[in-house]
Structures are given as C-alpha cells and as structure tokens.
C-alpha cells in the first residue's frame, strides 16, 4: 500500500505540470492586454514597458511559463499585476470555498447515503417514493434557481438564515449555501446508494447472514451496507472536486468571497498567474481526493490489492 501511494503521488507531478501549462496557454490565448486593462484611462507607454518587462509579458509563451513554474517550485506563486502576492489571495479566499465545499460534502454524504439506505429498505413503499420524487426534483432544478429561491424564501421572507455573505461565520452562513451546492450530488448519492443497497440485500452473503440468525440491524449495517458503499465512495471522492468547481455559482448567489468570485474577476482582468494558481490548487485537491478514494477502496474491498 505504501508503495502504491508513493507511486500515485509521483504520477501526480507530471499531471500537475501538464495541467498548469495547459491553463497557462489558454490564458495566454485570451484576447486583450492585461497592462492596458490595468491602466484604464491613464495609459502611460513608459510604465507599460516597465511592467511588461517585469512580468515577462513580451517573452515567448514557453519562457513565460518557465518563469512561472520555477517560481512555483520555489514556493512563489507570483503576484497580480497590481503587485499583490497570489499566495495572499489564496489564503484569504480559499478557506471560504473550502468551508463551503466541505459543508456541502457533509450534507451530500450523510443525507444522500441515509436517504438511499432507507428507500432501499422500504422499497416500493411510501418513503421510497418520497425519496424518488425528491431526488428527481433536485436533479432537474439548476443550482442557481434553487439557490435564489431558497435565499429569497428562507433568508429574506422567513429570516431563518443569513441572506448572503459570511458575517455570521461557520456554520450559520454556510448551511444554506452548502445545502444548495450539495443538492444535485445528494440526489445522485441517494439513488446510487439505493440501487447498490438493493443489490446487496438480495445477495447470497446477506442470505447467509440471515441464516446465521444475526439481528436485522447487523445484517443490514455490517453485511449489506459495507458492500454497497464501495461505488458510493468512488462517487463521493470524485465529487469533492466538482463541488469546488460548482462552488463558483453558489458563491455568486450567496455572495461568498471564495475563489469563485476571484476566478471570475481574474479572467476578466487577464490575470494569468492568479487563474493558473487557483485552478492548479483545485486540481491538486481533486488529485488528493482521488488518491484517498483509491486507498479507501482497498480498505472497503479486500479483493483489491495495490502491489
């Protein structure tokens, strides 16, 4: 297992380099001049030249990228064109997104899995139908619609939750955005858990567990559940990455100062280093989550061995 983890971490390095380069290219290709954008109405050709030299803007793409990536390996993410360190932006913005995503992740895992288990056990009964309709509803409504409606109803009209912003801190300011962000995935998790649970409840080893005279709670909780969680864990792991990406919309709706807003702003200002830095960070999290899933896999299913 140790060797497997090391190998996977090493594999992640070329992936990261490749991805940063790709994003760097895309930003380079964006039309517009960042320095002109920066100076606005007071264009100063002399200062423009100085700035262009400072940020290597007139160098070929590969050279620019080389400056950037060597900086990254020295632990320097670079600065914005206004001179603000990008690490500064990350440390300020990133915790907000992280809190939001993890809150959503918690809702998704707990509510989704529980709903799935119960509807599998009450298959065809009332509760199963309620869950089915609820998941259908959540899957079909776009996040920004659900977000705005809930914000208006729960926040503005009923005053149950903060309307926007993060003044109330965690958890108050994050509960509603977290739920909204989790909604679609939560529905998928519930469906997936249900299907997988129904399959394992019908399996031979569950029949054996019943024939052993085990109490129902043990039959379900130990014998059926563990097997049916294997596909659910995969989905959860991969979804952690998409939650961070999806957070961009939710952050906008609830006006949370996370990386989503920052990314949108940086794209419009052509701030390449900021975009590359933030996106790389997201990818890094995605890779780590995937690795965690693979490791968890082996824990859940002993038939899988990584050697």
């Amino acid at each position: 297992m140790g060797r497997f983890v090391v190998r996977r971490v090493l594999q992640a390095i070329p992936v990261l380099i490749g991805v940063t380069f790709l994003i760097y290219c895309l930003v380079f290709l964006l039309p517009g001049d960042p320095i002109r954008a920066l100076m606005g109405e007071k264009q100063d050709p002399h200062l423009a030249l100085v700035l262009r030299a400072k940020y290597h803007l007139d160098d070929p793409l590969v050279v620019q990228y080389w400056h950037y990536i060597t900086g990254v390996f020295r632990g320097d993410l670079g600065t914005t064109y206004t001179g603000r360190p990008i690490s500064d932006i990350v440390s300020q913005r990133f915790p907000v997104t992280l809190k939001l995503s993890l809150t959503a992740f918690g809702f998704e895992a707990v509510i989704g899995i529980l709903a799935g288990i119960f509807s599998a056990l009450r298959r065809g009964k009332f509760l199963d139908n309620v869950v089915f309709i609820a998941t259908l509803f959540l899957i079909s409504i776009p996040v920004f619609v659900l977000g705005n409606v809930l914000q208006l109803e729960l926040g503005v009209n009923w005053k149950l939750t903060p309307v926007a912003g993060i003044e109330d801190g965690w958890p108050a300011s994050y509960v509603l955005p977290g739920l909204v962000l989790a909604s679609t995935s939560m529905a998928y998790i519930a469906r997936l858990t249900r299907t997988s649970m129904i399959e394992s409840v019908r399996s031979d080893y569950v029949r054996t567990a019943i024939a052993k005279g085990l109490p129902r709670r043990r039959v379900i909780g130990v014998h059926a559940l563990r097997n049916s969680l294997i596909p659910v864990v995969t989905f959860l792991g991969m979804d952690l990455g998409s939650l961070m990406g999806g957070a961009i919309i939710t952050e906008r709706v609830f006006n949370l100062p996370g990386i989503g807003g920052q990314l949108a702003q940086s794209v419009s200002l052509r701030e390449g280093p900021v975009i590359v830095g933030l996106v790389t960070l997201l990818i890094l999290i995605y890779l780590v989550a995937n690795l965690a899933v693979d490791v968890l896999y082996a824990v859940l299913d002993p038939r899988i061995r990584y050697e």
Partner: peptide, 11 residues
C-alpha cells in the same frame, strides 16, 4: 449453501 464464494461475505 451451494456456492460458498457468493455465500460468504467478500469484504
């Protein structure tokens, strides 16, 4: 049971 591989819990 007949088929011990499927009758025993794999995990």
């Amino acid at each position: 049971f007949q088929d011990a591989l499927s009758a025993l819990n794999p995990v």
